[in-house]
């Protein structure tokens, strides 16, 4: 989930593109793994992960090419519409198990030319594998946002027309950013599907997109560790509120959504820079200055 949140932050926090369809890549990757795996047999980790990433990259470039012609609220609507199209396609057609989803019976097999460095069926191996990918994603994104390319993305967020007149083909930059972001969301979806052993249409619906958006906001936009923390915090809060004891005959855990919503409202009101903003402290936060 943290990888997923960081991938969206590249889009929102650095380039200023708010997408409500990011779960499309997440869910799509899950389904790709499900299709790649023969029934009752594991898929090869390396080939299926590679294929999933490639497919998500191609899908993202096509979607990006269409949606990035719009901006602002229209971009939100178009990304939402496209992910909902995918959602209903999977939900209402028989190709992928309809609303029940598809089960993945075995976790991917890490055998690499006959050499098996670790076994994902082993829970701690799977944990370390995911952690490695998380760290790799973090390092990759960190290098990316600090590069010349990353500076251009920030410039586009702040003032796209000025970037154009400075000689940057901003559309091309946005599409490439969208592809990076979609591909990483695909990695996250792949891991999630492998972990839970099931994919269903909810993975690509707008609910999921909204969830990851909340993670990014909760953690702090425009920071990389923020959204990663946001993912942990959101899942943790969910867990805490779901296990609340019943007090005076009222089962509080049944109404966990209420507490969850309240917590998010509080963060939005009092921590506009997210949890990362809290840690960084007020001295370093650069307040946007009005002209």
């Amino acid at each position: 989930m943290a990888i997923f949140a960081m991938s969206l932050d590249l889009l929102i926090g650095y380039t200023g593109l708010v997408s409500l369809g990011h779960a499309a890549f997440f869910g799509l990757a899950g389904y790709l793994l499900a299709f790649a795996a023969p029934e009752f047999q594991p898929a090869n980790l390396w080939t299926s992960l590679f294929l999933t990433m490639m497919f998500c990259a191609i899908f993202a470039s096509v979607i990006g090419f269409i949606t990035l012609r719009t901006s602002g609220i229209y971009f939100i609507m178009v990304t939402l519409a496209i992910s909902q199209m995918l959602y209903f396609f999977i939900h209402d057609s028989k190709v992928a198990g309809g609303s029940d989803g598809v089960y993945i019976y075995m976790r991917p097999d890490a055998t690499f030319f006959g050499w098996k460095p670790f076994d994902l069926e082993n829970i701690s191996d799977f944990y370390y594998f995911t952690l490695t990918l998380l760290v790799l994603t973090y390092c990759f994104l960190r290098a990316l946002v600090r590069s010349v390319f990353g500076r251009v993305l920030s410039g586009i967020r702040l003032n796209e027309s000025r970037m154009n007149s400075l000689g940057y083909p901003t559309f091309r930059y946005k599409v490439i950013c969208f592809v990076f972001s979609g591909t990483l969301a695909g990695v996250a979806g792949y891991l999630s599907a492998a972990q839970f052993g099931v994919v269903n249409p909810d993975m690509l619906g707008w609910h999921m997109s909204g969830n990851v958006l909340v993670m990014v906001i909760l953690g702090g936009m425009g920071t990389l560790l923020g959204p990663a923390m946001g993912a942990f915090i959101l899942l943790l809060l969910e867990l805490i509120f779901q296990t609340l004891p019943s007090i005076g005959g009222v089962n509080l855990s049944k109404h966990w959504h209420l507490f969850m919503g309240g917590a998010i409202v509080l963060v939005a009101l009092f921590l506009p820079a997210g949890v990362a903003g809290l840690i960084r402290g007020k001295s370093q936060t650069r307040q946007p200055i009005d002209d």
């Binding site: 990316l144 010349v148 390319f149 930059y173």
Partner: peptide
């Protein structure tokens, strides 16, 4: 940074993903 952003638009090809400015 404002000027550097302007200046780096003249780099021979525009996509430098990991080049630290």
């Amino acid at each position: 940074e404002n000027c550097r952003l302007a200046a780096q638009s003249r780099l021979p090809h525009s996509m430098h993903f990991f080049l630290n400015p």
